[in-house]
Computed example of a mutant assay.
Amino acid sequence: MAERQRGRPRSFDREAALETATLVFWEHGYEATSVADLTRAMGIAAPSLYAAFGNKESLFTEAVQRYGRRYGAFMLRALEEEPTARGAVSRMLREAAREYTEPGRPTGCLTLIAATGGTTASPDVEESLRAVRAANIAAIESRVRADVASGELPPGTDAAALARYSAAVVQGLSQQARDGATREQLEGVAATAMRAWPA
């Protein structure tokens, strides 16, 4: 009797699976998302997930990178494209209000949401998210320092504090979006926040 051939692993679209995983992590956070949740949403078996992405942590790392490229790039684009730090942060806050409330996808920001519920079970994940947030603050601070140097902002401007303030507003917008705030409400917050900037 001939030996039965083993079935070939079911093929799947890796990019589509990664997009699905990104949305699941975005909706539920890292810690609250199980491998079972991921495989169910992605429509694959656990061995396929491990073969394609390594493990949950490495899949999450890829998901954060994908989020940054596809959904979170508006922040760096604003910092790169606007002629002043004030204009860049103003645009960044307005676009955050829109992006964080976009219908048909999770609200808020993945790099902030994923940290809620505690990530202490995975210090590497916690550290990687902290690094992403720190890089955003550093990018804002760099633009502010450049405007102080050029005279666009007053010489006594505390670039580090202004950058942290701006990042804190972004973080607040994310949480408010999770709590059900509308785009219009968040745009109001963004406009109010910009009044704290030095003339």
Rank of each mutant, 00 (worst) to 15 (best):
A2R: 15
A2T: 14
E3V: 15
Q5L: 15
R6W: 01
R6D: 07
P9W: 09
R10I: 13
E15L: 13
E19R: 14
E27S: 14
A32W: 05
S34K: 12
V35Q: 14
D37C: 01
T39V: 15
T39M: 04
M42Y: 04
G43E: 10
G43K: 14
I44N: 06
L49C: 13
A52I: 07
A52E: 13
F53W: 11
G54V: 11
F60Y: 12
R66N: 09
G68T: 06
R69Y: 03
G72E: 05
A73M: 08
F74Q: 02
L76Q: 08
R77E: 15
A78T: 08
L79T: 04
E80T: 12
E80P: 00
E82F: 00
T84M: 06
G87R: 04
G87I: 05
A88L: 07
A88S: 11
M92G: 05
L93S: 05
A97D: 01
R98N: 00
G104N: 09
L110T: 03
T111Q: 06
T111H: 09
L112G: 01
A114N: 03
A115V: 04
A115Y: 00
T119G: 11
S122V: 05
P123W: 13
P123E: 11
P123D: 09
S128Y: 03
L129K: 06
R130A: 13
A134V: 08
N136Y: 04
A139L: 07
E141T: 01
E141F: 00
S142A: 15
R143P: 04
R143W: 06
V144Q: 01
R145E: 10
D147H: 12
V148M: 06
A149R: 15
A149F: 08
G151K: 09
D158P: 07
A159K: 05
A161F: 10
A161D: 10
A163E: 01
Y165P: 02
S166V: 01
S166P: 02
Q171Y: 08
G172Y: 02
R178E: 09
E184N: 03
V189E: 03
T192R: 11
R195G: 01
P198T: 06
P198E: 07
A199Y: 00
A199S: 14
